[in-house]
Design a protein around this nucleic acid. Structure first.
Length: 483
RNA sequence: CGGGGUGUAGCGCAGCCUGGUAGCGCACUUGAAUGGGGUUCAAGUGGUCGCCCGUUCGAAUCGGGCCACCCCGACCA
């Protein structure tokens, strides 16, 4: 910001200071604001509208795969949480406790859920008796609380919104199948609806969910080359079934422990949308989830012109129909130029300008947010063109993000190449790994990069571990620095 | 939790070194003109200077203590 135009609140450039750009976009676009409690944020109407659209689309995908929604309590008795040893050890450092009710101290303290495996497990043991009760395919949309030491808007806050699915199955195979099915649901949702490409695969032992048998994740690459774990799906095995006594009598008459899965995505995905698509002018909303898909900016000088424009905008509205999410900015306090900038900051995918000139020629000026391409469209074709362009933008955003990810993903053969590549440019590194926890830990210690996942669609090849150089035969794993 | 930094109007800052009635820009209010890429001009509203204690005739300013927030590292959706 120069001295002269300091009256204009400019956005920091992405390249100048990425994290500052990120925070400013959120605050200025009014997605969220800081709350009085440390690490907590308010999701403002514009941000919440985005979340609602995301919820709606993802929920439809859950329903289409046979899941139903339910709601479990916020508070979990300490004894429940403590049942699964690895689980409690994993979450203990970040649990907030309720110790008092009114003025009376509680006999047993209650955890504010950091996740709901424990309380849901307890209920499942009550509900499940027979193989005929299975599978149970329940999801819940809720908030959870984790006392994180360092927080960032949307990416890591003390309280956040998410969905958590908790399913129960008769066999291990079925549970495994569900785990992978959900991973694909997430992948499809994030790629098709949010226009964010991902790599997906299994987490290493060190990175898996505490209490799970196996964890799978989708990993996205942010605009600065860092990885963001964007969704996880866990095969829980029988760990929770054993400690919560979730058993059923099988077809063969035998009593068996059930197999479970759990999976979740959170408002963190909003952070991903911002970082993957945004530019120096602000947000770029993927059309499928954009709270406003089309902003109409009317332009007029005198009252008489305003009336003519208003009349024309009515015709435009009629032409566009009711399926599109559009808004007309009749604000009289700001100039058109101000509005252009404002709606670009907020990431509305398409802008329609309607002024006296357009009224006269029976046309609208149409501007894409992502490319800023401008075109003039006859009023009668407005809807077709708008619908077509929204689809095009959705596609182009995904393609652009794909190209970026591909360009920042490199195959490396040695540790030297590994560190050089990491210093040059942040991104994903595909390297061989022997499977040893010590090698994984050493690499993390030396470079800050972790194994994001062992990608499912990778080829098996011969190679040597990037740390210990032992020969290995397997898939290259994805390394990256993560949020 | 370790290292660094910042607290003065809703936001961004100056003033502090060298104590003496608290200032600027944006935002906000009112009016007029303007209006196709952040439009001008004019007049206004708004602050017990993070909190406490001390020094002093007098503290935003000097000294001590506390609190909060931000950035960078170890853990996480």
């Amino acid at each position: 910001m120069s001295e002269q135009d300091s009256f204009v609140e400019e956005l920091t450039d992405k390249s100048d200071d990425y994290s500052r750009w990120y925070t400013e976009v959120i605050l200025k676009a009014e997605l969220a604001d800081y709350a009085p409690v440390r690490g907590c944020m308010v999701i403002r109407p514009y941000g919440y509208a985005l979340w609602e659209n995301m919820q709606r689309l993802l929920d439809a995908r859950f329903k289409a795969t046979g899941h139903v929604n339910a709601y479990f309590p916020l508070l979990i008795p300490e004894s429940f949480l403590a049942r699964e040893a690895e689980h409690v050890a994993g979450f203990a450092p970040e649990v907030a406790w309720v110790t008092q009710g009114g003025n009376e101290p509680l006999e047993e303290r209650l955890a504010i859920r950091p996740t709901s495996e424990a309380i849901i497990g307890q209920m499942y043991s009550k509900w499940i008796h027979s193989w005929r009760d299975l599978p149970v395919l329940i999801n819940q949309w809720c908030n959870v609380l984790r006392w994180e030491k360092v927080t960032r808007l949307f990416l890591r806050t003390t309280e956040f919104l998410w969905q958590e699915g908790h399913t129960v199955h008769r066999t291990e195979e079925e549970a495994q199948e569900e785990t992978l099915k959900i991973l694909q649901v997430y992948r499809a949702f994030v790629e098709e609806d949010l226009a964010i490409p991902v790599v997906y695969g299994q987490k290493t032992e060190a990175e898996k969910f505490k209490g799970a048998e196996r964890t799978y994740s989708i990993e996205a690459m942010m605009g600065d080359g860092k990885a963001l774990q964007s969704g996880t799906s866990h095969m829980l095995g029988q760990h929770f079934a054993k400690v919560f006594d979730i058993t059923f009598q099988d077809m063969d008459g035998e009593r068996k422990y059930a197999w479970q899965t759990s999976w979740g995505v959170s408002t963190r995905l909003i952070g991903a949308i911002i970082m993957v698509h945004g530019d120096d002018s602000g947000l770029i909303m993927p059309p499928k989830v954009a709270p406003t898909q089309v902003i109409v900016v009317p332009i007029w000088r005198k009252e008489q012109e305003k009336e003519q424009v208003a009349e024309f905008v009515d015709r435009l509205k009629a032409n566009l129909g009711s399926e599109l999410r559009f808004q007309v900015d009749w604000d009289d306090e700001h100039t058109p130029g101000w509005k252009f900038n404002e709606w670009e900051l907020r990431g509305v995918p398409l802008r329609l300008e309607v002024g006296p000139r357009d009224v006269k020629n029976n046309q609208v000026v149409l501007v894409r947010r992502d490319t800023r391409e401008k075109e003039i469209v006859p009023l009668d074709n407005a809807k077709d063109r708008v619908v077509g362009l929204l689809g095009q933008i959705q596609q182009d955003l995904l393609q652009k993000a794909r190209d970026f990810m591909a360009q920042r993903t490199r195959r490396v053969e040695s540790f030297e190449e590994f560190t050089t590549a990491l210093e040059q440019e942040r991104g994903f590194l595909l390297a061989h790994w022997c499977g040893g926890a010590e090698c994984e830990a050493k690499i993390k210690e030396e470079t800050g990069a972790t194994i994001r996942c062992i990608p499912m669609d990778a080829e098996v090849e011969e190679g040597s571990c990037v740390w210990c150089t032992r020969p290995t035969s397997g898939k290259r794993v994805v390394f990256g620095r993560a949020y």
